[in-house]
Design a binder for these strands. Structure first.
Lengths: 142, 142
DNA sequence: ATTTGTGCAAATCGTTTGCATCTGA
DNA sequence: TCAGATGCAAACGATTTGCACAAAT
């Protein structure tokens, strides 16, 4: 059973090639981790630890490089929810997020369940590059 | 001519007291910088430099402490738009932001010009703590 | 007098970079 | 072969912290 945005190894190698990246062992293994199980939200640290646990040998610096290269290639999207660490989302389609401030957990909001109405006109000389909606959630106290 | 959310020194000292903070010289001077001219969006670095230029003597560590204490006291709101530095907004009312990714400039969006429709139900066991909308803008190319 | 705040420098955290070494085409 | 990728450690920028000193109640 395959999630809609999962990719085969071949598709992935092709995308890397198209983005001018060689399909190296590290990039393929990280890509597999990222994309094999559908939507994921990772930090560099988390991905690095996970790779280590799976026996994938890759340095933290390479994880950072790879996350940014994948982002440039359109395979990932960076999500800003914390002014202290960067999150990367394997779902590159426009959508928004819940961020649990207690657990630091980032999850997608089903794309049709938040309607942002008319956007305001951007300031003169600028244009809109993207719209991010983050709903901050906390454990319910009761 | 006074902006609606400007505060007198006395009002401010009272708010500090209510929040359990002593009105010290540094806190009063930083508060004056922050609140005397209406809405502002500052980083710790920017506020520290500005204080220095005005001859206010205060360390960067104290600026950080003060920004967080003011935030806890409800005088400021932290705005997350960059996964590398923290911005603080003197406008604590619910509203949203433009963030110019080229100039790193943060500005308010008039509160009525973005309507976020029905909010989705938060995941089980959680409740909504806040909704942030950030419209990323770039200089218009043309 | 006692508590709280401040400043400094050092520590920490996430992230980036320089450079020698390795690897894929 | 050789441009490009990796790993490591050092550099980095933002932020926090420990602790001696100063200021507020």
């Amino acid at each position: 059973m395959m999630k809609p945005d999962a990719m085969t190894t071949d598709q992935l190698r092709l995308r890397l090639r198209e983005a001018g990246m060689r399909p190296t062992r590290q990039r393929e293994e990280l890509a597999d981790l990222l994309f094999r199980d559908g939507d994921r939200h990772v930090t560099a640290e988390v991905l690095h630890r996970e790779a280590f646990q799976e026996g994938i040998q890759v340095s933290l610096a390479t994880v950072y490089n790879t996350l940014h290269q994948f982002t440039r290639a359109g395979l990932l999207r960076e999500v800003v929810v914390d002014s202290g660490r960067a999150y990367f989302d394997t779902n590159t389609a426009p959508h928004h997020h819940f961020f649990n401030t207690a657990s630091q957990d980032l999850t997608d909001i089903p794309s049709d369940s938040v309607a942002v109405g008319d956007l305001p006109l951007p300031p003169a000389g600028t244009e809109i590059a993207g719209v991010d909606v983050v709903i901050r959630i906390t454990p319910r106290q009761s």
